[in-house]
Design a protein around this nucleic acid. Sequence first.
DNA 1: AATGAATGAGAATTCATTCAT
DNA 2: GATGAATGAATTCTCATTCAT
Lengths: 190, 190, 190, 190
Amino acid sequence: MSPRTEQQFEAIREERKEQIKRVALEVVFEEGFQNASISKIAQKAGISKGLLYNYFESKEVMIREIILEGLSEITQIFDPNKDGILTYEEVRFFIDEIFNLLHSKIKYWQLYFAVMMQPRVMALVMEQFMETLNPFMVILQNYFKQRGSSDPEVDTRMILAFLDGICFHYMLDPHHFPLQKIKERLYTMI
Amino acid sequence: MSPRTEQQFEAIREERKEQIKRVALEVVFEEGFQNASISKIAQKAGISKGLLYNYFESKEVMIREIILEGLSEITQIFDPNKDGILTYEEVRFFIDEIFNLLHSKIKYWQLYFAVMMQPRVMALVMEQFMETLNPFMVILQNYFKQRGSSDPEVDTRMILAFLDGICFHYMLDPHHFPLQKIKERLYTMI
Amino acid sequence: MSPRTEQQFEAIREERKEQIKRVALEVVFEEGFQNASISKIAQKAGISKGLLYNYFESKEVMIREIILEGLSEITQIFDPNKDGILTYEEVRFFIDEIFNLLHSKIKYWQLYFAVMMQPRVMALVMEQFMETLNPFMVILQNYFKQRGSSDPEVDTRMILAFLDGICFHYMLDPHHFPLQKIKERLYTMI
Amino acid sequence: MSPRTEQQFEAIREERKEQIKRVALEVVFEEGFQNASISKIAQKAGISKGLLYNYFESKEVMIREIILEGLSEITQIFDPNKDGILTYEEVRFFIDEIFNLLHSKIKYWQLYFAVMMQPRVMALVMEQFMETLNPFMVILQNYFKQRGSSDPEVDTRMILAFLDGICFHYMLDPHHFPLQKIKERLYTMI
DNA sequence: AATGAATGAGAATTCATTCAT
DNA sequence: GATGAATGAATTCTCATTCAT
């Protein structure tokens, strides 16, 4: 029989890698970051530990890939690709998007908080994360400045802290948290 | 010397237990949760590993005690031992106290967030944590009700989320976070 | 084109096998015995791991073939295809050849010593190695006998030990070892 | 019951460590250097793998200790603690001692050669080894100089290479090697 | 003939926990 | 009460070998 073509192999690799990352995120979510061992991930993915190393150089590399991918799913919303001038409606749209994401990708947010709490893991991704977040902060500051804020930096810090706080509480208790009503309150603060 | 009474022995035990927990928190803070091994804790406390097990049934139990004690230091501020009627000044005082605590016990807050992020550890303490927090939430709700809020639960959830968000951001970057100015903004929300 | 004959296929196989062995020796030399993994060898040879197993039953078999081939490159010099009567000039020629080989094939010598030191690997090749070496020892003994030696076996053992000692030291420090001068001393001993 | 005294613990540790090193050398001897795994050593010593790490920081450290101890048993014979002036009888005595050691500590010599062949292991001990060997080389050179040698360095190199060659061959075939007779030949070369 | 994904046994190492003293 | 030697299961990671294609 003729061997698989390069494309076939590439497809297998891509699919497997996605599968592993999916499972790994699942395990991180269920067991917490430190307990997400290679063994458990491999077991849940139904593959051997060895194979995992066929796809990721090391656990650290795998974790970094998963985290960055996870964070990117969150942070790409912050990247408006615009001229930096925001209207009230646009900021409102951002907030809506964040809350939609919060709802649909709750695992990623858990990941986000977990990462923030773990200096070692944090160090792995900090730089790239900041690069993504920074433009958004600048735009927000400009928005508050243009709205006549007396201290745009404080306003920005506040709204971000608020967003994180809401995400945090929603994450802890998604079924009872009044996400919609809180969102409406938030609109009045921008 | 007369032999020590049972009470004396008990007192000595308690004191030593406190010392171990103090050291353990220190180690957890310095090395992270994962790397806070029994060996290191015992070594830093100047006792043998065996003796540690004389005081704590298991690492899990010890961690739980440490966490609960840490959280209690935070949450006891919420326990006014009052009739449940708060004035604006009293709520302001609470907020001030929380921020003072935030400033002086940043380790505990780091622990608090780290714990919240770890499902397994979280499970160990969730119940007791809620028991402590609940009365405060009730009081806050009553406060907002009496202030004429249209939705006191949402107000309470919001203020708590906000507080957590601020603590989180302060903890991530204590040197640059404009704690004082944020606090003043907060006053206007109560 | 007419289909290749069986001989042609056989020739192609042999050639490829040679190439793999050449690469494998290179890897063993560069990375040490321990780290000469099948993966690295296959990669450096530009073939797949699977194909390697098409040519060699197992790593052990491959290693044996490589070693024996390596040793044969060394020991074939000892095989004069003669009647067993040596002159002084011929022995001198042998010594010269050994030193030339030592110089030009230092990798093989390193392999030779490394193999000697590894009981498991040694066991794989001992028998065949002895078969190659033995005729040379007989011839040398005859030479010393004919030179009037009182104990030809001891003379032979001595000269062989000496040769190995020199090779060993040369290998450890090829740049400083006074190979030429040592060789001249050796001439006086035969 | 009262706990063991510090001396008792020290004694236990000392004894265990010696036992482990003894077994480890044994395993290195029997299985070759690369196959001397922590598992095998622990198993042969009848202890758990974990305990081994109670005594040695890492495999590398353990190997270094074993090697240095082994080499020191060999090389201490080379340290005459003298003024550096040797007589023929003294050099003869050295040679005798080396051969005695060769006979009684054949394992250590195997270790010595094995170490020499493994660049990675060699690197671990090279420095300390050279420090021990160097004075002996200087003394030997002085001896040959004083005996009127035209090239003392070559003489020294030669005698050392010879010694190694003999040890090597003896080690490979201790039962048939004519050690006594070879030794007598060696006397004529000094 | 040829590929490389996949396996599984085994490597070094860590650590909560036990236990004889 | 107190010690630390000892255990064993778990960790990350490696690699010779197999196998479907």
